[in-house]
């Protein structure tokens, strides 16, 4: 997977030649995104370049990246504590809280463009409401709890994955 990503990243920002996910990103964002964070293996699937790029644009200093870095690192701790709370709520079978936590993390991950985490959080939100993952069909509480367990684990994994990418981006570039 990493291989494929590298290939894509190396390709020029010609929308027509890239896949659907990259077209939207590369057509609207400058080539820097291809050289920057999107070149890091794993970034392609986990981060929406367009969204993340507009946050990077807000950095006053392109080398320090104080603003986006602090936001991203704050998000890390926010996510950590949210996953912790999810764990406790899962034990106490507090579906309502789980749904709220899912929504909460969904908002910030969406704002940062961390698409995978966002999608999982949305599922957590729905399962907490005792709905299926699209939020349309009802499911039982047991079903919900079961799905919540796996989805939270999945979200965590996805979070760690994107955390790695982001840290690489900031520490590799900043240091």
């Amino acid at each position: 997977m990493a291989r494929a990503d590298d290939d894509k990243a190396a390709a020029p920002a010609a929308p027509a030649t890239t896949t659907t996910t990259t077209t939207s990103a590369s057509s609207a964002t400058p080539a820097t995104s291809e050289e920057g964070i999107m070149a890091i293996p794993g970034a392609k699937d986990t981060i929406d370049a367009l969204t993340f790029e507009q946050i990077l644009e807000m950095d006053d200093d392109e080398d320090e990246r104080d603003f986006s870095k602090s936001i991203v690192y704050d998000f890390f701790s926010q996510a950590d504590s949210t996953f912790g709370k999810m764990e406790t709520s899962l034990e106490s079978k507090d579906l309502k809280t789980l749904s709220e936590l899912g929504h909460f993390l969904k908002g910030s991950s969406a704002t940062l463009g961390l698409t995978k985490v966002k999608d999982s959080c949305e599922k957590i939100q729905h399962f907490g409401e005792k709905k299926d993952e699209t939020g349309t069909r009802d499911i039982t509480e047991e079903e919900g709890l079961e799905k919540l367990k796996t989805t939270i684990d999945q979200a965590k994994k996805e979070f760690e994955e994107v955390e790695k990418v982001l840290k690489k981006f900031y520490e590799g570039e900043g240091a």
Partner: peptide, 16 residues
């Protein structure tokens, strides 16, 4: 906005 991430980014944009 209750979410700090959204709040900060939103503020930053608005500031811009």
């Amino acid at each position: 906005e209750d979410d700090p991430t959204c709040r900060r980014i939103g503020s930053k944009f608005l500031h811009a």
